[in-house]
Amino acid sequence: MRWQHLYLAGSGTYFPERVETAEDAVAAGRYSPDEHAANGIRAVRTAGEAEAPAVMAARAGQRAVERSGHAAEDFSLVLHACMGFQGQDFWTPAHYVQRETVGGHGPAVEIRQGSNGGLAALELAAAQLTARPGTTAALITTGDAFRLPYVDRWRTENQQVYGDAGTAVVLSRREGVARLRSTASCSVPALEPVYRGTGGWAVAPDPAEWPVDLRTRTRDYLLADPFRYDEVIARTAESLDLVVREALADADAKLDEMAFVVHPAIGRTIVEYSYVGGLGIDPERTVYAWAQDYGHLGAGDQSAGVDHLLTSGRAGRGDLILTIGVGIGYLWTAAVFEVLDPPGW
């Protein structure tokens, strides 16, 4: 989708102060030394008891709103993307984020699209702002805290290490620090069982099954058919290539014109196979070296990466930034930003 007159007006992140290194996790017997060597994630931030996911998202949102220059009444939409438990059952964290940031009476909606939640929300916000000319701005937040006994950040998956954080971006119809040129998304529901596995249905979360074991679910599904692994790999590669090509075409740009590429902060093996090798991306044009000190932030890798590029001064006027996300289910999204005026944040 080619977008007109939509801008990134502000961004923000919230990282807990507490740091847990991969070396410490290995020494404590919580993390496999072989997986540490393969994944390359050096450290994560871990949330305290008072740092619920929605709290971290709201703090990031407050920073993004302040940086945007928008008044609270400018916001017609709040989207909150997340992966895991948000701090309460039968509760809507998006409205907490709205109450703590911009208030108002616009819709506040929770987005559950796994690791692609942030970019999926960005595309939905762009569509709403475009379809409703009287609107001005939308706030998009993400927030997750991957805590025991529910989730083991070091073991729940074998090629990801989960870090805690809140992230936020403000999408605006007014001028901002960057222009949203395009987005593209592709869903492949045939791959939905990869993370569901081959087991039956539960009537409620079962503490006996904690911490969540995604690696076993995936392994059981892939091994149930001798051709399934190759099929999944092929379809994921095709879908990634499709959204990248479509987003670049709608942005009137080529991959080698991208100053930076922000891809998921996952294990190095997947990064090298899917992004560095599969797409031919120069690692020096990514934020992966920075992200290895924070881990995979659930739905927030892309917004955190863009915020890092803007606040660190790495991205300058005229730079094009390609962001790529993929979430279980599966849904891929790519978005292209053009930096207009580097902020003094």
Rank of each mutant, 00 (worst) to 15 (best):
C186S: 15
E100V: 03
P207K: 12
P207E: 03
E20G: 00
T167D: 04
A94C: 14
E231G: 11
G61S: 05
R2L: 00
Y275W: 15
V261N: 09
V232N: 08
T101N: 06
E73W: 04
G40M: 05
A247P: 14
Y31F: 13
P226T: 11
V276L: 03
E123D: 05
S182H: 07
S172E: 00
D89Q: 04
Q4R: 15
A57R: 10
A137Q: 05
R112S: 08
A178N: 03
T323W: 08
S115R: 14
R179D: 04
A202P: 00
D282Y: 11
A315N: 07
R285M: 05
T142H: 13
I270L: 12
D293G: 07
E100Q: 14
R196P: 06
E17M: 03
F15W: 15
A25P: 05
V102C: 07
A28T: 12
W345K: 02
L222E: 10
T183N: 03
A108M: 12
E73N: 04
D256K: 05
L340F: 09
E23Y: 07
L122D: 01
D164K: 08
G166H: 08
R217A: 13
T13I: 13
S303R: 12
T136C: 04
G318A: 04
A108C: 12
L139V: 14
L119S: 15
M56Q: 09
A224M: 12
D220H: 14
G278D: 06
W210L: 13
G103P: 08
A52G: 03
W91T: 02
T236Y: 11
A58W: 04
A60T: 10
G325C: 13
R181G: 08
T141A: 06
S182T: 07
R155C: 03
A234C: 09
V170N: 03
R174W: 07
A251H: 08
N158G: 06
A202D: 03
Q86H: 09
Q4T: 14
G114C: 05
L222G: 13
V65H: 04
E123G: 08
Q159I: 04
A25L: 01
P133S: 06
A9C: 06
D319R: 11
R63G: 01
G277I: 11
Q128F: 13
S182F: 08
F85P: 06
Q113F: 12
A184S: 15
E238S: 15
L8S: 02
I140R: 09
A335H: 06
Y162E: 00
L79T: 14
P189M: 02
M1N: 01
L119H: 14
E20C: 02
I281K: 07
P283R: 04
S187A: 15
A57T: 11
A121N: 07
L223F: 09
E257S: 13
R153W: 01
Q4Y: 07
S32F: 05
P207I: 13
F260T: 06
H80N: 14
G305R: 13
A168Q: 05
C82L: 13
Q159L: 01
H80S: 13
A304H: 10
V261P: 07
V44L: 00
